[in-house]
């Protein structure tokens, strides 16, 4: 547990809020398709961060429990 993880949590939350604002603004400008793409891009970026952490976790579990 270091400042890295809490920083990443805030990063995810901040990106979520920023993308929500972007989507709202784009929707106001009648660019709904762009809003969807922006949301999708944000989801993919966050997904990469979460997947990396998940890979770390599974590697740890594997080395500890499954394959000694």
């Amino acid at each position: 547990m270091s400042s890295f993880e809490i920083g990443t949590i805030f990063q995810i939350a901040g990106l979520g809020i920023i993308i929500a604002i972007f989507a709202a603004v784009l929707k106001q400008m009648n660019r709904e398709d762009y809003a969807h793409w922006v949301t999708l891009a944000g989801v993919v970026i966050i997904l990469f961060m979460v997947i990396r952490a998940l890979a770390d976790l599974f590697q740890e579990i594997k080395s500890m429990f499954l394959f000694q």
């Binding site: 993880e5 949590i9 995810i12 990106l15 993308i19 989507a23 944000g42 989801v43 961060m49």
Partner: peptide, 20 residues
């Protein structure tokens, strides 16, 4: 907070917290 705007990101936050 994030759930109000984008529920997907709220789920990612919860998942990441669980992983950590």
């Amino acid at each position: 907070i994030v759930k109000e705007y984008k529920p997907v990101f709220a789920f990612f936050i919860v998942a990441f917290a669980g992983i950590v």
